[in-house]
Every structure is written in structure tokens, then in C-alpha cells.
């Protein structure tokens, strides 16, 4: 096993002090900014631990999109700090559970001296994963795990994203969003967005295609696409995201639905559910990945727009409330 170098120790200390900053800073705005930096440093440590796929996902999703959502939430929240507990330390379940978990760990660390006694982790599934890699249709082992060996998990995971968008729709106000921008029209940002967005879409396409043989894949590409969508909205404050059309709704479910269809097809041809026959695996994976990238990108843009209250929910479509001024 490799011994830790001073740079590893430095990185770990940096992570810990940033986490302390996120949680300890009195100013919530600064807390969120530090959280974004924390995400980027986490991405660094993923790279250090030979997990570049995770580094990409963390940087794009964890630090990028979620960081932006936090910032928007704080801006909208303004001076009114929403909190459920009236006092700082109230005896509610969160406190109790957290305390319980904390005690468990302290007792555990103390009693067992875990870290001196921690046995070297086993081989895990490294060998079986690489042995069958040539049958999976991709050469990036992580892509093989999430889209072939454990495709069922990923199928349900795409379901989670779809679910969050549904939840947002279910809680949208029934009247059409009236977004009146108080923000200044930013010429710089706008021309910057005009330049960069096509490149981001291109990069998303590259990430998607590259996922088969090097770090990348649907989630990273989807997050990149979502980022492009958000940037587009940032540069045009008055722009609303209209989800009423058929195309928008179709794109939203594309990932989830393509898994269903290909899974059913596999079963109809006598294979297991979500089994890709090895000569078709490459195409099957590329199909579900493309569809998922589209869905993830639209979902993330939609989430941003909903927090900004710039989303036109498809519900408006049903209520027949057409805009007749």
C-alpha cells in the first residue's frame, strides 16, 4: 500500500478546514461560497484516489449546480432566515439522532482503536469487473458498473431525478409565474453566455461519448448540459422555462423511459431484464446514456428555474388557463 505523502496530508487538512468553514461561518452566504470551494477540493481528492469519474461528477453537480441552487436560495431568502427550530439546541429528533450517531462513533473509536486495528480492505470486485469488461461494450470500468453490471440501480436512480422534477411540478403555484426582473441587463454576461453555451453543449456531447472508454458519462454530461441551461438563464433574467410543451415533457422522461423500453425489449428477446447482449451492449448503453443526458440536463435547468420562480409548470396546460390579456 502506498504511504501518504505530505501533499495528501495537506489536502486532507484543507478539506477539513473548508468543512469547518462551511459549518462554522456566521455568514450563510460565505458558508455557501466555501461549500463550492469545498466541492472543488473534494474533486481534487477524488482525482488523487484514482476516481476521475467522481471528480467530474462532484465538480459539475456537487459544487456546480447544487452550489448555484444554494446561492439562489440564499438570495431569494434574503433577510428572512427560515428555520424550523426556535432555539439553537432544541430537543427534536434531528438533534437526538445526530447525537446518537456521534456517541456511537466516539464509543467505537475509543473502544476498538479502529484505525490501528482496521484490517486492510479485501480485493472487492476488482477482478470480476475487469474479467468481464470486454463483454460490457465499454472499456471504462465505472461506466460498465453503472450501466451494465448494476444497470438496475442506475435505472432507479434516473427515477429519483424524474421524481424530484415531479415533486417540483406538484408544488408549483397554479397560476403562471410572473417573473419581473429587477436585475440589470448584463451585456457582458450575455455575450459571454452566447460564446460559451455552444461550447458547453459540445463538451457535454464529448463527455457523453467519451464515457465509454475514459472518465465521463451520462451524469457528468447531463450536469454540463444543466450548467449550460443555467448560464443561459443567468444571462437573460426575464427568460422563463416553459415545460408545458410535449417535447419538454418527453425530454424529461426520455432517460427513464429508454431504460424501460430497452429492458422490456431485452426480456422479449429472451434475455434478463436490462441485459445487453455483448455485441449490442455498446449501442444500448449509448442510447440510454444519450436519453439520460437530455433528461438530466433538462431536470437540472428546471430545478434552477423553479428555485428562481422562473418555471412554467405543465399543470398550467391542463387548467386551460391561456393567456388572454
Amino acid at each position: 500500500m502506498a504511504a501518504a505523502t505530505p501533499s495528501d496530508i495537506l489536502l486532507c487538512l484543507l478539506i477539513l478546514s473548508l468543512a469547518l468553514g462551511v459549518l462554522g461561518d456566521a455568514n450563510p452566504f460565505r458558508g455557501v461560497i466555501i461549500f463550492i470551494v469545498f466541492g472543488l477540493v473534494m474533486a481534487l481528492s477524488w482525482t488523487r484516489l484514482d476516481a476521475p469519474d467522481l471528480a467530474l461528477a462532484e465538480a459539475a453537480l456537487g459544487a456546480g449546480v447544487i452550489g448555484v441552487l444554494f446561492l439562489v436560495a440564499l438570495r431569494k431568502q434574503g433577510e428572512k432566515d427560515v428555520s424550523l427550530a426556535t432555539q439553537r439546541l432544541r430537543l427534536n429528533s434531528v438533534t437526538i439522532i445526530s447525537g446518537l450517531l456521534l456517541i456511537v462513533f466516539i464509543v467505537y473509536l475509543g473502544a476498538l482503536g479502529v484505525f490501528s486495528a482496521w484490517k486492510t480492505p479485501g480485493k472487492g470486485l476488482v477482478e470480476p469487473v475487469y474479467e468481464s469488461l470486454h463483454l460490457t461494450g465499454v472499456s471504462n470500468p465505472v461506466t460498465a458498473v453503472i450501466l451494465n453490471y448494476r444497470a438496475y440501480d442506475t435505472f432507479l436512480e434516473i427515477g429519483v431525478l424524474y421524481l424530484v422534477m415531479l415533486s417540483v411540478f406538484a408544488l408549483q403555484p397554479d397560476e403562471k409565474a410572473k417573473f419581473t426582473s429587477t436585475e440589470q441587463y448584463d451585456r457582458m454576461l450575455r455575450s459571454y453566455a452566447r460564446g460559451i453555451v455552444p461550447f458547453m453543449v459540445l463538451a457535454a456531447g464529448y463527455l457523453l461519448w467519451a464515457g465509454a472508454f475514459r472518465p465521463g458519462g451520462a451524469f457528468q454530461a447531463g450536469a454540463m448540459l444543466g450548467g449550460a441551461g443555467i448560464l443561459l438563464h443567468l444571462s437573460r433574467p426575464a427568460m422563463l422555462l416553459d415545460m408545458r410543451g410535449l417535447v419538454a415533457r418527453l425530454s424529461l422522461v426520455a432517460g427513464f423511459f429508454s431504460f424501460c423500453i430497452l429492458g422490456i425489449l431485452a426480456m422479449l428477446y429472451g434475455f434478463d431484464f436490462l441485459q445487453w447482449p455483448s455485441h449490442l451492449a455498446k449501442h444500448a448503453i449509448l442510447t440510454v446514456e444519450t436519453a439520460s443526458t437530455l433528461s438530466i440536463g433538462l431536470t437540472l435547468t428546471g430545478l434552477y428555474a423553479s428555485v428562481e420562480r422562473k418555471l412554467i409548470s405543465p399543470a398550467i396546460f391542463y387548467s386551460g388557463e391561456e393567456d388572454n390579456p
Binding site: L49, D53, V129, Y130, R150, V160, L161
Partner: peptide, 22 residues
């Protein structure tokens, strides 16, 4: 070579965590 299965699990975890946070 690192074990890719945990990487897959963490990728799933990151996406689910991001969804819950959103």
C-alpha cells in the same frame, strides 16, 4: 487498479444526494 464498484455506488450516491438537496 482501484475497485470500480464503489465508484459506481458513490456516483449514484452523489446524484441521489444532489436530488434530495435540490
Amino acid at each position: 487498479l482501484p475497485d470500480p464498484v464503489p465508484h459506481g455506488l458513490v456516483l449514484t450516491g452523489i446524484v441521489i444526494g444532489a436530488s434530495a438537496t435540490a
